[in-house]
Design a protein around this nucleic acid. Structure first.
Lengths: 241, 241
DNA sequence: GCACTTTTTGTAAACGATACAATTAGCTAT
DNA sequence: ATAGCTAATTGTATCGTTTACAAAAAGTGC
């Protein structure tokens, strides 16, 4: 609340062995789903350190930028994607994790439909590519750790948070939904039982429409009702896939 | 693979265009349990900003200090307590959360037996005191937010992690264990059913001993077996109170 | 021994999860 | 139009877990 007047800072007078000589970054773990495949977006570094290595997209946070805002900006710069509502997972702060100085990094993640975004390599990257989570190359910094923690977070959160809405079209079939869960959690669900569970979740509303142009019996479409979901959430009802 | 040659670091050559002028801190949310009461340790600030306000114990991280190490150190300095295995919860990074500059803070928490530690106010604190979580005063900075998030974390983690071992004696009764859960989660368990659940958890070992000096039927004592717990954890068995 | 308190064991009903099977609906080819 | 195909959808029987509630047991103190 106290809108503090920031003192004019002369950078060169900052005591060099004191505080206020550190930086922080955000690293974004963007999981991409498409047709039963889970991938993660990696860039190939074009600058030292770790030049040529694969790494998570991430960047330093501006001194006058909120952490969450920074995560959105960095993601935006790298993927052109907005409103991803990434979630903060954990902060990594080993002293020697960054060779150029003291940098702690805050990890964020999101899950998106792979085909809907067009990641473009920014100036400091040689390449940018989706990698299957089953085959992750050696990564720069401690990014392997970060990635793994985020994968854990994804798997545990997708059961309780509607992360999957980012991956499915507005109107989707229950089989499509089931496939997302099976892919992310690497396990099989029984078709009938999965439907029964969904039936108990009143925020998944059955539509009158069905699929068209399929070579078999078309499935009825469903949509996610955010308002009802929040209601459920408030009411303390357990909602878990 | 590409072991990048780390350039010799000369701090003065780091491009100072706005980065590397921030600091980070850790804030410790120490929950104290004693006889069906849950409290939290707060200090009363003795220096500006927020002089006189209650706040979470926390401090800046040294530039050459790991984040987790710093949390332990700060806690040690304030409570004389070691080996608390605090858990990182979340990082708070609003631009204006600290009036003196850009400081993001990483929140850690732990749960301990109130009577076993003797918190002492350090130089920069006027007072240090346990406050019931039911009556939290106005707090400095964004510490109220931090406290609330940590309380959520405590409640969700205690079901899966043996946090309660810090609160009970080595040998304890199931009723004592039940009381911890009832206090932290603010809900009642059925005595019989609680015992049945515990019976399924083989890492809670029933001892031959019983209570003594009680004016009623003595309860048999139990102890927690860390090794068996980790085994269970590994085996993927669900362990949840 | 009797009253008292709390532990400990037991049970029946309710509920939810699981495996598996049967039925249905639309598409395509003939 | 009809048969064959595929996948959606519904149904069911079993099993295991949770829940509420009650009865029995084991100490203590009078």
């Amino acid at each position: 609340m106290a809108k503090s007047k920031e003192p004019k800072k002369d950078l060169y007078t900052i005591p060099i062995d004191g505080f206020f000589q550190s930086a922080f970054s955000v690293d974004c773990v963007i999981f991409g789903y498409h047709e039963k495949e889970l991938k993660v977006l990696l860039i190939q570094r074009g600058t030292s350190p770790y030049e040529g290595d694969w790494a998570l997209p991430g960047d330093l946070v501006y001194p006058h930028e909120d952490l969450d805002t920074a995560a959105d900006r960095v993601l935006m710069e790298l993927t052109q994607l907005e409103d991803m509502s990434m979630l903060q997972v954990k902060t990594f702060g080993k002293v020697d994790r960054h060779p150029l100085g003291r940098v702690i990094t805050v990890a964020y993640f999101a899950l998106v439909e792979l085909q809907e975004i067009s990641p473009m390599a920014s100036s400091w990257a040689n390449d940018i590519k989706w990698h299957s989570v089953k085959r992750i190359p050696k990564l720069a910094f401690d990014h392997k750790d970060i990635l793994m923690e985020c994968l854990d977070a994804l798997r545990s959160l997708i059961k309780r948070e509607p992360l999957w809405t980012r991956v499915l079209p507005k109107k989707f079939t229950l089989t499509e939904l089931q496939e997302v869960f099976e892919t992310v959690l690497v396990k099989k669900y029984d078709k009938g039982n999965f439907r029964k569970k969904v039936n108990g979740m009143k925020f998944l509303k059955r539509l009158e429409e069905s699929q068209i142009n399929v070579r078999h019996r078309p499935s009825t479409l469903y949509k996610f009702d955010q308002k009802l979901f929040l209601q459920y959430r408030e009411s303390g009802s357990v909602v878990e896939f």
